[in-house]
């Protein structure tokens, strides 16, 4: 993992890009969607063919934090079902990168069916007083409104991480509430533990956030990830 991380440290950036963060998580055994970083519309189509449709195209740049709000909404294109759609979306992102004069590329990623799981947030933060801490919450647009979250001081055992999944008010959703998908609590717990271990083992990491983590019956997949360095601002 540290290769990615050292590169970021050398670049003196405070945050990893989404693809760097996901690579780091994947190196630690977490599931992430198959993806390629490309720099041209043609390469984006090749990547999509390789990965299989549908795909998502996202801007990937150290200069862009909030991808969906970036460049008037051109930073993220989801549900791309055809080569034409991929080409157009990649071209639009690259054009916006040029317009803004920033370094960047296009992340082409396997599209994931959100209906097949439940979006949760798994985060970890290094608190000045408590040290590494982790949280689990119900994800989606209402995360901060509902604040259905539970916290632990890290590190924690697998049993404690599983217990966290039962502590959410939304816990019954995980058992196939009213015909909804059932989710793998163990996979959520493993994700929490991985975040906990990353913070515990790397003083350089200030925050890790996987939001959303798509919890499914068979796995938990990190659909977006943000990793922040301790001495970054």
């Amino acid at each position: 993992m540290t290769e990615t991380f050292e590169a970021v440290a050398a670049a003196e950036r405070s945050t990893l890009t989404e693809s760097e963060a996901k690579e780091l998580l994947a190196d630690h055994g977490l599931s992430v969607p198959d993806s390629r970083l490309v720099r041209s519309p043609e390469a984006a189509v090749d990547a999509a063919t390789d990965i299989g449709y549908p795909v998502v195209a996202k801007v990937s740049s150290p200069a862009v934090q909030h991808k969906s709000e970036w460049a008037g909404g051109r930073g993220v294109a989801v549900g791309l079902e055809s080569p034409e759609a991929v080409r157009d979306a990649a071209a639009a992102i690259l054009e916006a990168i040029d317009e803004q004069g920033i370094e960047g590329s296009v992340l082409v990623e396997a599209g994931v069916d959100l209906e097949a799981g439940i979006e949760v947030i798994v985060g970890g933060t290094r608190d000045p007083s408590f040290g590494p801490t982790v949280l689990l919450g119900l994800g989606g647009v209402a995360v901060e409104l509902l604040e259905d979250t539970t916290h632990r001081i890290a590190p924690i055992s697998h049993a404690e991480a599983v217990e966290m999944t039962y502590e959410l008010s939304s816990s019954p959703l995980f058992d196939g509430y009213r015909g909804g998908p059932t989710v793998d609590r163990d996979a959520i717990a493993e994700t929490i533990q991985t975040v906990s271990e990353l913070l515990a083992a790397n003083e350089d990491i200030a925050d890790v956030e996987i939001n959303p983590l798509l919890a499914r019956e068979d796995a938990a997949i990190a659909l977006d990830a943000l990793i922040t360095r301790t001495d970054g601002d």
Partner: peptide
């Protein structure tokens, strides 16, 4: 910047801790 930061207050950590 992150949801995690916004959602992790001192009170929650003391209660959890």
């Amino acid at each position: 910047e992150s949801h995690t930061g916004a959602l992790t207050g001192e009170y929650e950590l003391y209660q959890a801790g």
